[in-house]
Design a protein around this nucleic acid. Sequence first.
DNA 1: GGCGATGGTAGACAGTGTCTATGCAGGAGG
DNA 2: CCTCCTGCATAGACACTGTCTACCATCGCC
Lengths: 194, 194
Amino acid sequence: MQEDDEGLRARLIKVGVELVTREGTQALSLREIARRAGVSHGAPRRYFPTHLELLSAIAREGFAALGAEVARALGDGRADPRAQLTTLGRAYLGFALANRGMYELMFRHDLLESNHLGLREASLPLFHVVTDLLIRAGLRPGVDPRIAAGVLWANAHGLAQLWGWGSLQLTTGSAELEPLLRATLEAHLGPEPR
Amino acid sequence: MQEDDEGLRARLIKVGVELVTREGTQALSLREIARRAGVSHGAPRRYFPTHLELLSAIAREGFAALGAEVARALGDGRADPRAQLTTLGRAYLGFALANRGMYELMFRHDLLESNHLGLREASLPLFHVVTDLLIRAGLRPGVDPRIAAGVLWANAHGLAQLWGWGSLQLTTGSAELEPLLRATLEAHLGPEPR
DNA sequence: GGCGATGGTAGACAGTGTCTATGCAGGAGG
DNA sequence: CCTCCTGCATAGACACTGTCTACCATCGCC
């Protein structure tokens, strides 16, 4: 009975986003999305020739949401770089753990059209923010900022996944993510200045 | 026809291991494994009540292989801890990239029975090796070795995944994994002693 | 020699993604 | 006004999938 008649294409994406955040990746079958959008199982094909393209469009929405969340957390960006990186890290992991289904989808490359326009582009700005912050925070001489940013990203991503599955709770014996996040930042930014 | 008549159970696992390392996770359907093992699609059910249990047994084999590979690389363990951690990291990422399908399966928690006996247990020894090496390499005072090991593991895992998908080549502009691995180790172990 | 248990077969069922044929609306052109 | 034609959705088919169930062959054992 929703009358937001913005076209089927947008509705399919919206339904998909709700579905993946509420029920996870497994619920994202093409037919289920079509059902919840109130159309037949063949209808999505006109806008998304293949299942992967629909999922890619949904994942693209996830990258946009992550970017918005991080931007919101960073605010006007007047804090010192190290504090901003801490905030960014917390926001990144917060998003990943608050939207596990969506975060999983965003990195399930077997479910995504790697050539999908806007997928790679959707994640690049965030990477550049990290690179810039690392430069401003000061790196040891001779360290490529992009390498440092890539390594930091990998660490955050690994943290998000392993923590989300409970593996790190088991191995480290920690019930809180916070100490792991702090240790990560200290490793990549050097010890906290006193 | 097959002479190695060690029972269907072992044969299914062996076929699965070959299949996942050669054709990837998507090829691991129950029916395909049964087909390649030369039995009907209902046969595996007697040994593995569900598809996930068969996949878990295959993944378990992967953890064993990873552990063996790392142990082989570490040798007698007489090198200094830092060199051993470098070797371990190289072996870990080498395994992950040489056996992408298997590595992917090992961390596809939606395909694995999380209660599967021996799955968690299969990955714990490796974690303890890392913890011990970190202790022997020397940590800054007040740092929990298990936390440090967890963070390092997360970094290696993230590196393996993001590099395997080509994301890091794109963002960092690096064509080689080695500088990323070196940066990772320097971050977690401190700068290389001169 | 019958007999139960072990281990595999084969068919059904609901579900999936893709493809194809069908239909139905509405508007343009004659 | 009537006729096409195009845009968009429907519905059925097909080849798959994992699971369940009924069947059956082969073997050891009493």
